[in-house]
Amino acid sequence: MTHFKVYREDRWPHMFCPGCGIGTTMSCFQRAFVNQGIDLDKTAFVSGIGCSSRVSGYVYADSLHTTHGRGLAYATGLKLANRDLDVFVFTGDGDLGAIGGNHFIQACRRNMDLFVICVNNNNFGMTGGQASSTTLHGYTTSTTPGGNPEYPFDLARLAAAAGANYVARYTSAHPKQLIRVMEEGMNRKGFRFIEAWVACPVYFGRYNKLKTPVEHLEWLKENSVHIEQMKADGRTSEDDIDLHVAGKITVGVIRDAERKSYIESIEGDD
């Protein structure tokens, strides 16, 4: 199985719930990684805390499972100490957008040489389905029983605005496209950010009439619109992400830039 070219056989089966989109994201990553022929011995994986952040513990490579929200800061130190390592970060919407929000925008701003995958399940899965900073307006979670009064972050646009070189978003209903943008990101420099919206039928789904994985996947598919389509339709970014205002999840490559990466900047041009 190609799986165990990337993941640890002795830790299988993984801990994720049936229908959880982290599995899909892992499969996509594994495909992209193997297609690109990257040597696991020249990589390191870093993560924070959460279900999504547990992926680092399944990758058969040097891996650092750190503290909640701080994965990017650990990864920054690791990358700078050994610049030959390709450093990958797995994170969740809570880990990255809530507790780790500042590290996220700062690492994008620095254009730090990291490849980051955020599994966005619109809630805190590990702690039992509380609202996160990407929970949609009006949606229900265990801490927003009357509907979420807050508005969600658009993590991909945040990354792009903060200066990340490569930013793309798809959902677990778009595995092929996810693999494609992951591979493209692996061929870019600086901060590469892949946001994967995924099903969390056990928590987010249960509270929002998306109880089965299939229902959840269909919901993701129906509510996604490609960025080119969105432009053609004359839609604005304000229609974006917040499904409550009849917006859509914009998918596709949100930014593909060639700013010097942090390491290129400190090492100079010679």
Partner: peptide
Amino acid sequence: SSIAAVIGASWG
């Protein structure tokens, strides 16, 4: 993040 980077660097 300072102490986090320091720990990450140590693993590097």
